[in-house]
């Protein structure tokens, strides 16, 4: 593994499978009475969040704490974009405090890349979502969830439906799922597919109904109603009719097909409540898996020297 996790493209197939196997070991921890390992005792993990994201922050925080790391939460509302303290000065501050890993969420695409490469800090940098670029740990937890339900992903068909243009989740998933051998189809109105998507080595479609019957996984992306004001689609209702996942569409799915959503959902927009709460939905499980995957990433990046699952007795 590289020293940073900035993009899902940083992961070779071996790297990705190592993360998934490690996560599987660590996930079993969730079922034990004492959910803590000493693997990262004495190491400091900083959650540096320039954007609000309670669920991702909590997930990383839980992951770091279960590995006994010291966790500092740094909510830097007001990034340099709003002329607050600059990313650089924040990085220098964290460096001075001796952070071993910086988990960063930022509204600017590439901000974690800058943090890792501009020479401001020697810490490992984990991208927890940057602008409309990537969210690699989300892709890992999604792949982990699929893997637990479907086994190996080679040849599996994953449909990712919604606002691909603005989605860091879609970008990271497209990269990682291809690395793991899955077939990916991005489904969106033409306005919400990026220019040049032909070069992503994935299929695209404007027609969700033609894609659903063949899919093994359907991943619905959040669509912000405000996009309507920028003419990406005419109305929320039209979007829901053409691209939303409701019970009628869900009936087209194969029996084993699972429904995913990275959250937060807009119920009634891209997904109806009955689908979100159905037995096909693994949305809540994604959250549980998120902690295990983030534990695996922290453990592997910070070079935990011993196998992840073997030291729990020391902790107990």
């Amino acid at each position: 593994m590289k020293r940073h996790l900035l993009s899902a493209a940083d992961l070779s197939r071996d790297d990705a499978e190592l993360v998934l196997r490690t996560a599987e070991e660590l996930r079993s921890l969730a079922d034990r009475p004492i959910k803590k390992l000493p693997a990262l005792r004495g190491r400091t993990v900083v959650n540096l969040f320039f954007e609000d994201s309670t669920r991702t922050r909590i997930s990383f925080e839980a992951a770091a704490k279960r590995l006994s790391a010291d966790v500092i939460n740094f909510a830097a509302k007001g990034s340099s974009l709003s002329k607050g303290e600059s990313l650089k000065d924040t990085a220098l501050t964290l460096e001075a405090m001796g952070a071993d890993a910086i988990v960063v969420r930022h509204a600017a695409s590439g901000a974690p890349h800058r943090l890792a490469t501009a020479g401001w800090t020697g810490s490992s940098v984990i991208n927890a979502g940057d602008g409309t670029h990537e969210h690699p740990t989300q892709a890992l937890l999604d792949a982990f969830t699929m893997w637990r339900h479907l086994g190996a992903l080679d040849g599996r068909r994953v449909a990712i439906v919604g606002d691909v243009l603005h989605s860091r989740v879609a970008r990271s998933n497209a990269l990682l799922l291809r690395t793991l051998g899955a077939e990916v189809t991005l489904v969106a109105p033409p306005t919400l597919l990026p220019v040049g998507v032909d070069g992503w080595n994935v299929e695209t479609s404007y027609d969700v109904d033609s894609v659903l019957p063949k899919a093994d996984v359907v991943m619905m992306l959040r669509v912000q109603g405000e996009r309507m004001n920028a003419s990406y689609f005419p109305t929320v209702r039209e979007y829901s009719r053409r691209y939303g996942l409701d019970a009628r569409r869900m009936a087209q799915l194969q029996d084993h097909t699972i429904v995913m959503h990275p959250g937060p959902m807009v119920r009634g927009m891209e997904i109806t409540a009955d689908v979100a709460d159905s037995s096909r939905s693994v949305i809540v499980e994604q959250v549980t898996n998120g902690v295990a995957v983030r534990m695996a990433v922290l453990y592997l990046l910070l070079g935990g020297s011993e196998p992840a699952g073997t030291t729990e007795r020391d902790a107990a």
Partner: peptide, 18 residues
């Protein structure tokens, strides 16, 4: 807009400049 609009702007998540 942040960079030339093309395949790369889409991948980098930087708003395209057509």
């Amino acid at each position: 807009a942040q960079m030339n609009e093309g395949e790369l702007s889409g991948r980098l998540g930087l708003r395209g400049w057509p």
